[in-house]
């Protein structure tokens, strides 16, 4: 909404942004300083070389789990959002609200049934054992965001497609997905971050240290008593290391968003 800005306006905008950035940076900088306590960058090295944590393995585990979750959630949520937004069927409202009802289940409130389900399915201590619950918890939420967005895509485009004889699935592929890119990227980034940061599901369902995620691995640096200052510094280092992959995913998402938006704009 800024057209032909004067120089002074530009300065004012930058100043406001910078003030907020400083406030937002302060705690971040503090955590970095904490992570450099006692041994400096040695803390990061100590995390990577920790005898009980194979750092690259835990990063791989988290990454694999987060990517699979994101892919499955993306598929399920786009399909369902398409149907709920653009199709007419008898049980539509009932089904939609029954999914919306699942939105606010806090994992801490359903730990036991979650565990029972995983046990019954025989997926404890496996990747699927973490991915499936993560999908289940995230999908309804992402469905809602996507449906809201899909609602804003004009039906006329689909009507034109129908006249051309396109199948419903073809319209999903060629119309809904490309036009939905900004929202899809948002939910993908969000799902990735949620799965990456999730602690309670792996805590409950993973036993084998080879399957540990980055969040679980931080428990080697905690300890209410007998927590040495070195462990404290390493904990911060581990937590910061843990953030980096998510930041990269976010940056990719932002870039994709830009190109996706331009592509979407051209098509519409």
């Amino acid at each position: 909404m800024f057209i032909n800005l004067r120089k002074i306006d530009k300065w004012a905008i930058q100043a406001v942004l910078a003030v907020f950035a400083l406030i937002w940076l302060y705690p971040l900088v503090q955590s970095v300083i904490k992570s450099l306590g006692i041994n400096g960058f040695g803390n990061y090295l100590a995390v990577i070389q920790h005898p009980k944590v194979n750092y690259f393995l835990v990063v791989f585990n988290s990454f694999f789990i987060a990517v699979c979750t994101t892919a499955v959630v993306g598929l399920l949520a786009t399909l369902a959002a398409y149907a709920f937004s653009k199709m007419q069927f008898k049980l539509k409202d009932v089904l939609f609200y029954s999914l919306v009802a699942c939105l606010a289940i806090p994992a801490t409130a359903v730990m036991s049934p979650l565990f029972f389900t995983a046990k019954t399915l025989g997926i404890m201590n496996s990747y699927a054992g973490v991915i499936l619950p993560l999908v289940a918890f995230n999908a309804p939420f992402m469905l809602l965001i996507l449906k809201n967005y899909f609602d804003s895509i004009p039906n006329a485009i689909l009507e034109a497609g129908m006249i051309d004889g396109a199948s419903s699935f073809r319209m999903y592929r060629t119309i809904m997905i490309p036009l939905g890119v900004p929202a899809i990227i948002n939910i993908a980034v969000l799902t990735f971050i949620y799965s990456w940061n999730d602690y309670i599901i792996p805590l409950l369902l993973i036993r084998d240290e080879k399957m540990y995620t980055v969040t679980l691995a931080t428990q080697f640096f905690t300890g209410t008593t007998n927590q040495t200052p070195e462990m404290v510094a390493q904990l911060y280092a581990a937590l910061i290391l843990m953030t980096i992959p998510s930041v990269i995913v976010y940056m990719f998402g932002q870039n994709a968003m830009k190109s996706g938006l331009t592509a979407g704009a051209v098509k519409s």
Partner: peptide, 11 residues
């Protein structure tokens, strides 16, 4: 998904 599940289960 089922394969993934089964693998984990086998372990």
């Amino acid at each position: 998904l089922l394969t993934a599940a089964a693998c984990g289960n086998k372990n």
